[in-house]
């Protein structure tokens, strides 16, 4: 049934899972702080990969293209926070969540159609010179190890940032208790923008990391969003650490499902798996009620 040796599949799954965790961590932070479930988050991934791919086609050097892609994602993310989402910040409770979801959904559709129709062939693949590495009798692709390493480093950096730095503590305090944090003198407006920028950086790096092991096409944005959202649901929204664990779980399960029953059916099976998980543990693996 399985053509590939299981440990390799597990590594594949972990790499995919870490990539999804990067996207989902941004989503979680934005939801926790701004109360917006950003459906257009997957499009941020695509914006940066498309920008990089187009620049590469025009012959620009790799670092410059990657930086430009990162810049594009950050710019879009800030634009989203400052301009597009402005109407919702005056609202409260469910109305706000709903409208935020809707506006970002509409923006996602807009970006998706615009990107797919303008750059239908802007696929990003970052190929590395050395294809494989042998270790303990197993052959690994360097790209996989590298991308897994980069993703893990980014997540550790995010973790340290949230735990140690002043801004990270401010973000966590705002997520836990907005009024209390306001009384302590933490500016919601400033950190909201910061969270969106961090989300943009994380999404864009997720796109590049995915580009190391696979091809990222302009039409995959919604799929990234949905997978990341499912990671959020499983991890418990508002919990960044839960998101990381959930990302790895979902990545591994998804990869095994793809190897066993094929890509198309794997999506359905994953959904059923998550439905069962939600039935058993409605608040996510270690998340809180939301």
């Amino acid at each position: 049934m399985l053509d590939i040796f299981p440990p390799l599949l597990i590594i594949d799954g972990i790499v995919l899972g870490l990539t999804l965790s990067l996207i989902a961590a941004g989503l979680t932070m934005i939801y926790g702080l701004a109360g917006v479930l950003n459906i257009s988050h997957g499009e941020l991934v695509i914006i940066s990969t498309v920008t990089a791919a187009v620049l590469l086609q025009f012959g620009s050097p790799l670092p410059l293209a990657l930086l430009a892609g990162l810049g594009a994602a950050v710019a879009l993310s800030s634009f989203l926070e400052r301009v597009v989402l402005r109407p919702i910040y005056g609202l409260e409770g469910e109305e706000r969540v709903l409208l935020g979801l809707y506006i970002t959904l509409a923006l996602a559709i807009f970006l998706h159609s615009a990107l797919v129709s303008t750059f239908p062939l802007a696929y990003l693949t970052l190929s590395l010179p050395i294809p494989t590495v042998s270790f303990l009798g197993l052959t690994f692709r360097t790209a996989q190890l590298l991308s897994g390493g980069i993703a893990a480093t980014t997540l550790v950096a995010l973790f340290l940032f949230l735990k140690r730095s002043w801004s990270g503590m401010a973000i966590r305090s705002l997520t836990q208790n907005e009024v209390g944090a306001l009384i302590c003198g933490v500016s919601v407006k400033r950190y909201r923008l910061l969270v969106f920028i961090i989300g943009g950086v994380l999404a864009s790096s997720a796109g590049y990391i995915r580009g190391l092991v696979a091809t990222v096409g302009p039409e995959t944005g919604l799929e990234f969003t949905i997978l990341a959202l499912l990671v959020c649901v499983v991890g418990g929204v508002r919990s960044v650490y839960g998101t990381i664990i959930a990302g790895i779980v979902i990545g591994v399960v998804y990869t095994f499902l793809i190897a066993m029953i094929g890509t198309y059916l794997a999506n359905v099976a994953l959904l059923v798996f998550i439905m069962l998980l939600v039935l058993i543990k409605p608040y996510g693996i270690i998340g809180e009620r939301w």
């Binding site: 479930l37 469910e94 969540v97 979801l101 939600v278 409605p282 939301w290």
Partner: peptide, 10 residues
């Protein structure tokens, strides 16, 4: 399961 509106959306 008393999950809020966005859960249904996702």
């Amino acid at each position: 399961r008393r999950l809020v509106v966005i859960f249904t959306g996702i």
